[in-house]
């Protein structure tokens, strides 16, 4: 058996804080920051990174294509 874990890298300067990724994440990984980026937008970040499975739902719906998704298999004991 192997366990799949994911992570996302968000280009925070490109993010406009639309929040569509946040509500599209089936695992509740993402949230909007309290800080703002250079354009004045709150941006998406991994608030709960351990829950990410790398399903890419967030990146798929992102209108600004600012999310990259990574996935890795880890062997389980």
């Amino acid at each position: 058996m192997a366990k799949i874990r994911g992570a996302v890298v968000i280009d925070k300067e490109r993010c406009k804080g639309c929040e569509v990724c946040v509500v599209s994440c089936p695992c509740g990984v993402l949230a909007l920051s309290t800080e703002v980026n250079g354009k004045g937008y709150a941006y998406s970040y991994m608030a709960n990174p351990t829950a990410c499975t790398g399903c890419a739902s967030c990146a798929i719906v992102c209108p600004d294509s600012c999310i990259a998704v990574y996935r890795q298999k880890f062997p389980t004991e």
Binding site: R5, A7, G54, A59, V69, Y70, R71, Q72
Partner: peptide, 14 residues
């Protein structure tokens, strides 16, 4: 278990 941010693990991007 921390995912390595390396090209071979990338599954979706711009």
């Amino acid at each position: 278990e921390e995912v390595q941010i390396v090209p071979e693990n990338r599954v979706y991007g711009r």
